[in-house]
Simulated assay, not measured.
Amino acid sequence: MAVNFTAYLRVSTDRQGAFGLGIEAQRKAVQRYVASVGGNLIEEHVEVETGRSATRPVLLQAIAQCRRQRAVLLIARLDRLARSVSFISSLMEGGVEFVAVDNPAANKVMLQMLAVFGEYERDQIATRTKAALAAAKSRGVVLGAHGKVLAANHRAAAEHFAESLRQPVERAVATGAATLSEIARCLNDEGHRTREGSAFSAGTTQKIMFRLGLRTAGMALPETRGGPML
């Protein structure tokens, strides 16, 4: 029986995501691997997020899909998944099978060792970055000048995340969910999680509804789609 795969592709910056840098190479590597083993690629998930972040909603959605459809999580390189030993370990213990195309024959011990080196590299990068910022500050460079840009990017990411849940929310309403708690239960049952990786509650569901411009009975519709931050 052919194995079903769910692909997870990640780039670390908005610029890479906007221009497709790195994604196409990962996509081709994944497609070649699936073809070589005669498998089925059922879906592809693309995320723009740093490897050190523990709040990656697209990755959580990919993992949830693997659990629902008994699929294997497929990545081009191990560092595209996470440079964290604890993250890799928890993923293994959670029963989600995954394959790194750059080392498909690796066993659990080898994968954890690779994650150790990846985590070390991440820490070294962080140390060099802090040193460079300190040196810039000593030269009189004003740090944080791009705060407004970062805030705008955060709002855009929240809007994008909410939009990714539009169909699940509408599906929940169509099947009879009439309150925020009922919609939250439907989202959780389908394996969706908040941007922080937690289960949905009535409160977090309301934020999604605000951003989507939707409402349930007794819930006021906002004047704009900005809504509260997720």
Results as ranks from 00 to 15, higher is better:
Ile88Leu: 12
Ser89Glu: 08
Ser90Phe: 04
Ser90Gly: 02
Leu91Ile: 11
Leu91Pro: 06
Met92Gly: 13
Met92Leu: 15
Met92Lys: 06
Glu93Val: 13
Glu93Leu: 15
Glu93Asp: 14
Glu93Phe: 02
Gly94His: 06
Gly94Leu: 04
Gly94Tyr: 00
Val96Leu: 08
Val96Gln: 00
Val99Gln: 04
Val99Ala: 02
Val101Phe: 09
Val101Asn: 00
Val101Cys: 14
Asp102Cys: 09
Asp102Met: 04
Asp102Ala: 05
Asp102Gln: 08
Asn103Tyr: 12
Asn103Met: 13
Ala105His: 12
Asn107Gln: 11
Asn107Pro: 01
Lys108Asn: 15
Lys108Pro: 00
Val109Asp: 07
Met110Phe: 02
Leu111Cys: 06
Gln112Tyr: 00
Met113Cys: 09
Ala115Asp: 08
Val116Ala: 07
Val116Gly: 01
Gly118His: 01
Glu119Asp: 12
Tyr120Leu: 13
Glu121Met: 11
Glu121Asn: 09
Asp123Lys: 15
Asp123Gly: 14
Ile125Asn: 10
Ile125Arg: 09
Arg128Trp: 01
Thr129Ala: 13
Lys130Asn: 13
Ala132Ser: 15
Leu133Glu: 07
Leu133Asn: 07
Ala134His: 08
Ala135Gly: 05
Ser138Val: 08
Ser138Tyr: 07
Arg139Asp: 12
Arg139Gln: 15
Gly140Asn: 11
Val141Met: 10
Val142Tyr: 03
Gly144Met: 04
Gly144Ala: 07
Gly144Glu: 07
Gly144Asn: 10
His146Leu: 12
Gly147Ile: 02
Lys148Cys: 08
Val149Met: 09
Val149Phe: 03
Ala151Asp: 09
Ala152Phe: 02
Asn153Glu: 11
Arg155Trp: 03
Arg155Asp: 12
Ala156Phe: 03
Ala157Leu: 13
Ala157Tyr: 00
Ala157Cys: 09
Glu159Lys: 09
Glu159Cys: 03
Phe161Ala: 14
Glu163Arg: 14
Ser164Leu: 05
Ser164Asp: 07
Ser164Gly: 04
Pro168Val: 01
Pro168Gln: 00
Val169Gly: 03
Arg171Tyr: 07
Arg171Leu: 13
Ala172Asp: 02
Ala172Lys: 05
Ala174Cys: 06
Gly176Val: 05
Ala177His: 03
Ala178Phe: 05
Ala178Ile: 12
Thr179Phe: 13
Ser181Val: 06
Ser181Asp: 12
Glu182Leu: 03
Glu182Asn: 07
Glu182Cys: 06
Glu182Asp: 13
Glu182Arg: 09
Glu182Thr: 10
Ile183Trp: 02
Arg185Asp: 13
Leu187Val: 08
Asp189Cys: 04
Glu190Thr: 05
Glu190Cys: 11
Glu190Lys: 02
Ser198Ala: 14
Ser198Gln: 14
Ser201His: 08
Thr204Gly: 01
Thr204Val: 01
Thr204Phe: 01
